[in-house]
Structures are given as structure tokens and as C-alpha cells.
Design a protein around this nucleic acid. Structure first.
Lengths: 100, 100
DNA sequence: TTTTGTGTTGACTATTTTTGTCAAATTTAC
DNA sequence: GTAAATTTGACAAAAATAGTCAACACAAAA
């Protein structure tokens, strides 16, 4: 399984951009982008959207992976992680049908 | 839906403990426990376990609710929140069967 | 009406985590 | 070997989190 950072790196390379150029265009420090692509710093939703646009990529899949990584990070070592996911899912579905 | 904090308050009252006594026994400041029960400060897993023990309550349900609240907090306003949950679930299941 | 018990609030400090910046070091491609 | 590209680590700045304390509000009891 490749991480969101890794996917962003692949997309950047496919778009023919160097780290420097991409970082400059996205208006962040090159060191930070380097670390983000390698999972050493946390990604943000805003940056992912910006990069997706730069790379002409539909952001949906990237965002979904990004969010699920955050969830996994919180639950991976939790004995009741899966049960918690089920409860969260039910709750969110409920919130969606009953607007809020 | 009542929050984990609210449940902890109910359990404390059922156990006949005042805020001050419970906080003292759990070795935290009374202000913090007050705020945690009312959702003004974040709960921690460790404290929940300690309180559950003090109140003679099985901690499983409390922990599951606590974890799911954290997940919901991250995803509630996300368009792709539910999809992210599905991905996370699949991933965690995979991790469990293939031991990491 | 004063005292006592209980919970709440806000101001303040301390600590930890996150974020940003930069330059040097390393790696890669030519 | 040189130049371009990436990685690394040290450091500072800023933000988020956690802990401490005293004062406040309220109700019930004395």
C-alpha cells in the first residue's frame, strides 16, 4: 500500500516537476514538501488540493486516502479500533440523513 | 446521543462520588474533570480507564465511544468522510489478518 | 442569614507539538 | 567532476494542549 505522500510524489514526477519547482509553485519550503512526500511531516488537505490542481489530478481519491490515513493512525493499535469505526460510521450516516 | 463525558458523569453520580472526590482519587485537578465531563477538555484513554475502574464499570463501551468521537470529530464535515471510513476499515482489517 | 458542600469559570503558566526557515550534506544525472 | 535535485538536521517561532489556582455561583443545611 502506498501512502498519499508517495502518490503525490509519483504525480509530481509524472507532471515533470522537480521538488523545487513544485514547492515554489505551491508556495512552501522545498524541505517541507520533501518531508511530506516521504511521510516525515503531515500533509494538509489544503496542500493536497493545491498539488492535485497543479498536477491535473482529481483530488477525491487523494483526499479519501489522506483522511483514512489519519483515522488509521489513531486506531491502528487500539484493541477496539474496528468497533469504534463501526460506531463512527453509523453516527455519521445518522448525522447525514438528519442534517446534523 | 450522549457523549463519553456525560456517561462518565452519570457513572460517577451512580457511584456516589462528588467531583472533588473523584478528581482527587484519579489524581487530577477538579476543574479538569469538570471540564472533561462537560466536553470542554479532551478526555484521555488513560483517564477513562482509571475512572471506569473507580466506578466499577467495564471500560470497553466507554473506550469505543471515546475513539469513535475522535474519528467523528475529524470526519464530520468532510464530503468524503464515509468513504474514508470504509477505506480505513478495510485497511485495518487487512493489517489485523496479516499481523501488521 | 451564615455556613457548608458541590460544581463551574477564567486567568495564568508551563509543557508539548507542530510548523517554518535555512544551510549544509548527500545523492543523482549528466 | 560538475550541476541539479533531494534530503537532513538544527534551530526558532507559533500554536495547541495541559496543569494550577482562586474566585464565583448556587443550593441545601444549620
Amino acid at each position: 500500500m502506498s501512502t498519499t505522500g508517495q502518490k503525490l510524489r509519483e504525480l509530481r514526477e509524472k507532471a515533470g516537476l522537480t521538488l523545487r519547482k513544485a514547492a515554489m509553485q505551491a508556495d512552501i519550503d522545498v524541505a517541507i514538501l520533501s518531508k511530506m512526500e516521504r511521510g516525515e511531516r503531515k500533509l494538509t488537505k489544503e496542500l493536497i488540493l493545491k498539488l492535485a490542481k497543479m498536477y491535473n489530478e482529481n483530488p477525491e481519491k487523494l483526499i479519501i486516502d489522506f483522511l483514512s490515513e489519519k483515522v488509521i493512525y489513531e486506531l491502528k493499535d487500539e484493541e477496539f479500533g474496528l468497533k469504534a469505526l463501526k460506531v463512527a460510521e453509523k453516527q455519521i450516516k445518522y448525522m447525514r440523513t438528519n442534517n446534523k
